[in-house]
């Protein structure tokens, strides 16, 4: 770079010199911002590994996740069972590998449900304002004040435990954050003259909302969703740890911590290894979200 600074003597060919700024790809800029920082890249690597592990779980796991060898229960790590076995003699490593599927499915589906509902509600509230805004926002306030645990218990007692019901409970509980963020972003995006111009052309409200506003309001949502997946995985682990989450014997990291913590003194690997898995994945999603935020930040356009 310092070479450029003093590079005064090289004449630029005036015929080739264009008056407009040289074209550059926005995508390329985003990628270069993203890969220019180490932590987002580490986050991305963790997430990609997680996805690969979840997809190829049957190939990677040494044993089926629910295969019990009661004789070999509570074994310390060995060459046969890298992370030992649990109280029912199941291979811990295999259960962690299969547990990644549960975490990923719940993380993605809950985030998808809550984001879609939240985005639509936030868009409606901010675009129409007035009574619609107040009704939706007061509903969100109520939702935020309602403890997630209580909601999960309520859903579990009404519908029973299980993967689908956990998704419903968490999905409802997580609507408020994307809704409020969306509402705020749309409030500012709709001030732009291109929205006014679309109205002056006679564009329908629906089209203005989804064609003019939503694409411009989306970047911060993407960041929230990425970090949200991590939060959902953490919440699911919490619920499973408390026993109101996924029903056994399905392998989940939260449930494994619960199973293992009784043996924390004698066999710490049982509780710590799924705990580390949770930590790594949540960390990965958070770092990925941070990286996306910087990459999508239009204020950094041209600066970096």
């Amino acid at each position: 770079m310092t070479n450029d600074a003093n590079d005064d003597t090289q004449p630029v060919d005036i015929a080739k010199w264009s008056e407009t700024a040289p074209r550059y790809s926005e995508i390329k800029r985003m990628i270069s911002v993203f890969v220019g920082r180490p932590l987002p890249v580490i986050g991305l690597v963790i997430i990609v590994l997680l996805i690969l592990v979840a997809i190829f779980a049957p190939l990677l796991a040494p044993d089926p996740p629910n295969q019990m060898e009661i004789i070999n229960k509570l074994q310390q790590p060995s060459s046969e069972h890298w992370l030992g076995t649990d109280s029912l003699g199941r291979d811990t490593l295999s259960r962690i590998i299969f547990g990644s599927r549960t975490s990923l499915i719940i993380g993605i589906s809950v985030t998808a449900i809550s984001s879609i509902i939240g985005i639509v509600l936030g868009l409606l509230a901010a675009y129409f304002g007035g009574a619609i805004y107040h009704i939706i926002m007061r509903f969100m306030d109520a939702l935020m004040a309602f403890p997630m645990l209580l909601l999960a218990l309520l859903v579990a007692s009404l519908l029973g435990a299980g993967m689908l019901n956990i998704i419903i409970a968490l999905g409802i509980g997580m609507i408020a954050a994307p809704c409020r963020l969306m509402c705020g972003v749309v409030m500012s995006v709709k001030q732009n003259d291109y929205v006014l111009s679309a109205r002056a052309m006679g564009m329908s409200n629906l089209r203005i909302m989804f064609q003019e506003i939503l694409p411009n309001a989306f970047p911060p949502l993407l960041v929230l969703m990425t970090i949200g997946i991590g939060a959902v995985i953490l919440a699911e682990a919490g619920l499973s740890f408390l026993g109101i989450g996924i029903t056994p014997p399905t392998a989940t990291w939260g449930g494994m911590v619960n199973d293992g913590y009784k043996f924390i003194m004698t066999n710490p690997v049982l509780a710590i290894s799924p705990g580390v898995a949770i930590m790594l994945v949540v960390f990965g999603f958070n770092m990925l979200g941070d990286g996306l935020r910087d990459a999508l930040d239009p204020k950094l356009r041209g600066v970096i």
Binding site: N192, Y194, L196, S197, A200, G202, E212, N216
Partner: peptide
């Protein structure tokens, strides 16, 4: 609807009046 097609509007801010996406 038909009135709108026979009126045009030009706005002040050339940065804000065009959808950046």
């Amino acid at each position: 609807r038909s009135v709108r097609s026979s009126m045009g509007a030009i706005f002040q801010d050339p940065y804000g009046s065009l959808n950046p996406r």
